[in-house]
Design a protein around this nucleic acid. Structure first.
Lengths: 168, 168
DNA sequence: TCCAAACCCTTGGATGTCCTAGTATATTGC
DNA sequence: GCAATATACTAGGACATCCAAGGGTTTGGA
C-alpha cells in the first residue's frame, strides 16, 4: 500500500466497464468507487491524528457531538440519529469512552428507558485538544481547492437529501 | 436511522465550527464529513444488492478484479495493491471465497513466496450476475447528475493522485 | 558460496459496524 | 387497571480492516 501505482486503478476499472458494454454506467461506477477510496484515505489520516489521544474517529465524533450540546449531555438514541450510525455502535463507543473516563452514563430524569450520555471535564478537555489538531492537520490541509470544497458540499448534500438523510 | 432528520447534521456541524472560531476550516470539515456519510450510504446500497449472492463488497471487488484479468488469476500482493487494501484483508476475503468455491489458491510457477488466486467457473459466473444487478440497481440509479459525476471523478481523482494512490 | 536483508503470505489481537434477539420501561387501548 | 404494543438499550455473533509478529522463499552483497 505504500508505493504509488503506475496507473489509476479506478480509471482502469472504468475502461473495463466500457469494454464489456456497460458504458452507460461506467462513469457513475467510477465516481462511486472514487468516493469509497477517498473515504478510506481520509479516514486513515484522521485516525492517525487521533491515535495519540487514544481516540478513534467513532469515539471522537461522539465526544464532539456532546461538546456542542448545550448541557453537554444527550440521550443515546439522539446521538445515534445525529451520527447516523446504528444504536449498537453508540453503545460500543460509549462503553470505551466510559472506561477512559471521558463520558458518563446517567438515567434520564423522566423516561426510565432512556440513558443520557454526559461529558466529563476530562472528556470536554480532550475533545477540545483533539479538534484543534484535527483542524490544523486534516481539515486545514485537505488537498481540496476552495471551489472543489464547495462543489463537494453541494453535490453530496443533494445526494444525502435525496437518500433520505434529512428533509431540510 | 430510518426517519429523516429535520435538519442537515453536517450543515449544523459547520455552523458549530464557525461559531467556535474555526471558520477557516469549517467548509473542508463539512466536505470531508459529507464524503464519510456518502460512502456509508453507498456501501449500504451495494451490500444490500450483494447479500442475496452471498457476497460482501470486499469479496465482490476481488471477484470483479479477477474476472478482468486475462488469465483469470492474480498474485495476492497484486490484488492487494490494486484494491488498495491491506494484505491481510485479501487473505481474509480469499479464505471465504475459497470456502464458497468461487476462487482457488495455486502456487506461483516460478516464485515460491507468491500465491496465485484463480477464479473458478462458479466464481466467474457469479461475478457476472452480481455485476449486472449492481449496474442496474446501484450505478444506474446513483442519484448523481451526469455533470456532477464528471465533477466527482475530476475532484476525487486529483485528490487521490495527490495522496499518492497513483503516479499516472 | 553464503548469510543477511527483503519479500510474501498467514495468524492472532484489537476495533468498529451491522444484524438478530432479548430485557426493561412507557404508552396506548379496551 | 391491565394487557398489548412500542420504544430504548444491551448482548452475542458475523464481517472487515488494520497492526504486529512469525515462518518460508528469494535476492544480493560480502
Amino acid at each position: 500500500m505504500g508505493t504509488p501505482l503506475p496507473r489509476d486503478p479506478i480509471a482502469d476499472a472504468r475502461l473495463n466497464w466500457e469494454r464489456h458494454g456497460w458504458s452507460d454506467v461506467a462513469a457513475p461506477m467510477a465516481a462511486i468507487t472514487a468516493i469509497m477510496r477517498t473515504q478510506q484515505i481520509l479516514l486513515g489520516r484522521i485516525e492517525a491524528v487521533l491515535k495519540p489521544f487514544g481516540l478513534t474517529f467513532a469515539r471522537y465524533e461522539l465526544l464532539a457531538l456532546l461538546s456542542f450540546a448545550r448541557s453537554g449531555a444527550l440521550p443515546m438514541n439522539k446521538a445515534s440519529a445525529l451520527l447516523q450510525v446504528h444504536p449498537t455502535s453508540v453503545t460500543n463507543a460509549v462503553d470505551r469512552l466510559q472506561d477512559a473516563g471521558l463520558v458518563m452514563r446517567s438515567p434520564h430524569p423522566t423516561d426510565g428507558r432512556t440513558t443520557l450520555i454526559e461529558l466529563t471535564p476530562d472528556g470536554r478537555a480532550l475533545a477540545k485538544r483533539a479538534t484543534a489538531v484535527l483542524n490544523s492537520e486534516v481539515f486545514g490541509q485537505s488537498g481540496f481547492g476552495d471551489q472543489d470544497v464547495d462543489q463537494l458540499i453541494r453535490i453530496l448534500g443533494t445526494f444525502r437529501q435525496n437518500a433520505g438523510d434529512f428533509s431540510g
